[in-house]
Amino acid sequence: MTAIQTSGDGTTPGPRQLGDEVAIEMIGVHKWFGEFHVLRDINLTVHRGERIVVCGPSGSGKSTLIRCINRLEEHQKGKIIVDGTELTGNLKNIEVVRREVGMVFQHFNLFPHLTVLENCTLAPIWVKKVPKAEAEATAMHYLERVRIPEQAKKYPGQLSGGQQQRVAIARALCMNPKVMLFDEPTSALDPEMVKEVLDTMVSLAETGMTMLVVTHEMGFAKSVADRVIFMDQGEVVEQNEPEEFFSNPRSERTKLFLSQILSH
């Protein structure tokens, strides 16, 4: 398996130079849910600053793959090393990794009993022991980045889906993560709100954030990803830079998937 070092960038065409620094390394990772083999021999190297889109049919293991990276799921075989820390049963290591890895969920998972601002400051205050005033300043900075600073005092239930997802992105960014994981961030949104969330993710990509995105938004993959990974039945079937991936898929399974997803 080769890690692709250069790739096209939708906004400024031409190869993008990535460093040699490895952010995430997965070596021979297997996972089972009971008897069901969800992940089969996953080998993946993610470099710092790389943006990866993971796609595939439902049940292919793509969500499980990224959930293993911050240990929301436990892998049973193989090695996962995030920013130099190996994920094992050791709680200390898990804590270290979770501090460095931000996650955005399909259903936002904002804390409904806290205001938008409190959602963003809770983890910095309690996990990183940042003083409250400083945490609030950081939170306001990121809420401005996702363009909803005026909603800071509201509760999540008072916001639209797109706004909630942007708050979720800001909440993750407030921890100053080195890697951001997105688990189908636009799948639960009404169509007219998908764009505002994707725009936020594009502008995040422009800052050089390392991103792993599980999504069906192929437009996003084409314009932002350095690499597209196609998964089926728990395996990485194919990975390539987006242009090659979409114009010249190699495996039959990829072709079938692309024809289904792009036909409508």
């Binding site: 929301l72 998972n109 804390f111 809770l122 983890a123 996990v127 993750a172």
Partner: peptide
């Protein structure tokens, strides 16, 4: 909901 636990875990809360 399970998502509340996952969001808290994901943020690194003990």
């Amino acid at each position: 909901p399970k998502g509340q636990y996952e969001a808290a875990d994901g943020l690194g809360l003990s």
